[in-house]
Write a protein that binds this DNA or RNA. Structure first.
Lengths: 169, 169
DNA sequence: CACACCCGGTGGTAAACTGCAACCAGTCTC
DNA sequence: GAGACTGGTTGCAGTTTACCACCGGGTGTG
């Protein structure tokens, strides 16, 4: 069931919180956005925080209704659904970037999980914009941007950080 | 009671959400930050969304424990407590600004409540920085910054928007 | 046709969150 | 000293959220 349309007030911050102001919604978006998870099972089993299947199901439904996520059939596997970001959720990149920076400054983050936030912070708005262009290519079918891939750069930094911590791997 | 220290993961976004990822915490911060509310009763009765007293009490306690808010005795009134922002919560300004911009773009905001978000958006990072300096002066006792007051500018825009909607007063 | 995988849904239970209203004791005002 | 105001607290009920485990039908694979 769709939850009651409370609409406490017309304040943009309040309305934003009514959409993404819970523990899981932004984490799901983060995993689709940065983790490249596109299927239910990927989001479920590769979740760093261990989301439950019914919660994931519920959030994907909500996010779809709110226009932050779309679902489409997977041509490779007739039962699979592919979840994609929309322009609306892609424009959350600056929010996530700032939220990550803030967490990195004040909270007990782990090094390997915050390295992406660090790269995004150092890259600044220019990098975010490039990242958003890349996401539009991946999720909306837009033209692939020219420059080097931001996603690859983030993943590379992550792998380097993991390697740094377990050199003998 | 302090809620269980779950710490689902060390991801900065996750940790940030564990601190401010609920419906009310950011609204309380918003009211202290933009609305100039410093006392319990002000936060309670002038809340746009109508927060309940026990919820407000709980959030103020949590935010204090998390280091986003401090409380101090009011010399004017021996029973009153003055709530202040900290450097940690002042640095949420960019997050709130982006969240407001995002809401303004995609959600059914009301004109008079989103005018501040619009001013902040148009002012960009430079204006945010000036606003943060001003907040440091108000809440942390820092030196009053030189330029014109951002808070006054926001309030003025708000009043003008209200006037525009109800010209006859 | 077995078999493992895939997308979820269900049921049960516990905890958290929320709203409402009443209440309390200290404090300022007149 | 009466009355209003202060910062909260408490109790209760309803709703939401959460976790856990299991199930169930469709689907690709050998």
């Amino acid at each position: 069931m769709a939850r009651s349309a409370t609409l406490r007030s017309g304040c943009p911050i309040n309305l934003s919180l009514e959409v993404i102001g819970d523990h899981w919604s932004l984490l799901v978006i983060r995993d689709i956005m940065f983790g490249g998870r596109r299927h239910f099972r990927e989001l479920l089993t590769e979740s760093e925080e261990g989301i439950a299947s019914n919660i994931l199901s519920d959030r994907l439904k909500r996010l779809t209704e709110a226009g932050l996520v779309t679902r489409a059939a997977d041509p490779q596997h007739r039962q699979k659904q592919i979840y994609s970001l929309t322009e609306q959720s892609i424009q959350l990149v600056p929010v996530l970037a700032h939220l990550g920076s803030w967490g990195r400054r004040f909270l007990p983050v782990s090094a390997e999980l915050s390295i992406r936030a660090q790269v995004l912070e150092e890259g600044g708005p220019a990098l975010w914009e490039a990242f958003m262009e890349e996401l539009r290519a991946i999720h909306l079918g837009a033209k692939q941007p020219a420059g080097p891939s931001v996603l690859e750069r983030l993943d590379e930094a992550y792998r380097a950080e993991v390697e740094r911590q377990t050199p003998g791997g």
